[in-house]
């Protein structure tokens, strides 16, 4: 049994691909959590995504609630070449369900889809699981830039839908910035820190922020 948790499912690579438009082989393991923002216009809303990219290393496990507590969305990332990382997601989902009482958009990402020959998690299994927990599902590759754009767009659409359905529910009024938040998680053999993302979509409130 390997005691070293596999931290590199590619959370940071996915975020950097989306926010920064690039991929670096030499990305370093995240320390604590990194914070990214991304602004776009979608269906006549100005959306500001605030993304927490959390560290997968075991010792940061206990910090997780700090990030997902106020999140509006969670992106759970596993590595399609690692079964462990997929199983780990289930722990995260349990933990989220237990600790987050506001509605939250969940999105399952099977990353490193370019490594088809090393695949351990089948697309069908993952899709079925995503369906069972009512989550969106995408297979992505930060290297080849596939699936990522789609995933973020769909998550944003869902958040807007949330916002339209329950304009007063959390979404606009959570934090000073009226966040909509995502979590990002990965997994591997024991535990992985969720990366979570904060999404802010504030149609009017944003002023001249962008």
């Amino acid at each position: 049994m390997n005691v070293i948790p596999n931290t590199g499912v590619g959370k940071t690579s996915v975020v950097i691909r989306y926010v920064g438009g690039m991929f670096s082989k030499a990305v370093s393991p995240t320390i604590g959590a990194s914070f990214f923002t991304y602004k776009m216009t979608l269906d006549s809303y100005r959306v500001k995504l605030q993304v927490w990219d959390t560290a997968g290393q075991e010792r940061f496990r206990s910090m997780a609630p700090m990030y997902y507590r106020k999140a509006n969305a969670a992106m759970l990332v596993y590595d399609i070449t690692s079964l462990e990382s997929f199983y780990d997601i289930k722990d995260w989902v349990k933990e989220l369900k237990k600790n987050v009482d506001t509605p939250i958009v969940m999105c399952l990402l099977g990353n490193k889809s370019d490594l088809e020959s090393g695949r351990k998690v089948s697309t069908a299994d993952a899709a079925e699981y995503a369906n069972s927990i009512d989550a969106l599902f995408f297979e992505t590759s930060a290297l080849k830039n596939t699936g990522i754009e789609d995933a973020f767009l769909q998550v944003s659409r869902q958040l807007i839908k949330f916002y339209e359905t329950y304009p007063n529910s959390g979404l606009g009024i959570l934090s000073p910035q009226q966040d909509v938040t995502d979590i990002f998680s990965s997994s591997s053999e024991n535990v992985r820190l969720p990366t979570r993302e904060n999404q802010q979509k504030t149609p009017e409130a944003e002023g001249c922020g962008c």
Binding site: T12, I31, G32, A33, F60
Partner: peptide
């Protein structure tokens, strides 16, 4: 030492214990 050894701080604002 923490700053010196953590490349990841260069990617974005970070929040760490």
């Amino acid at each position: 030492n923490l700053v010196n050894a953590s490349e990841s701080f260069k990617e974005a604002e970070s929040w760490t214990p």
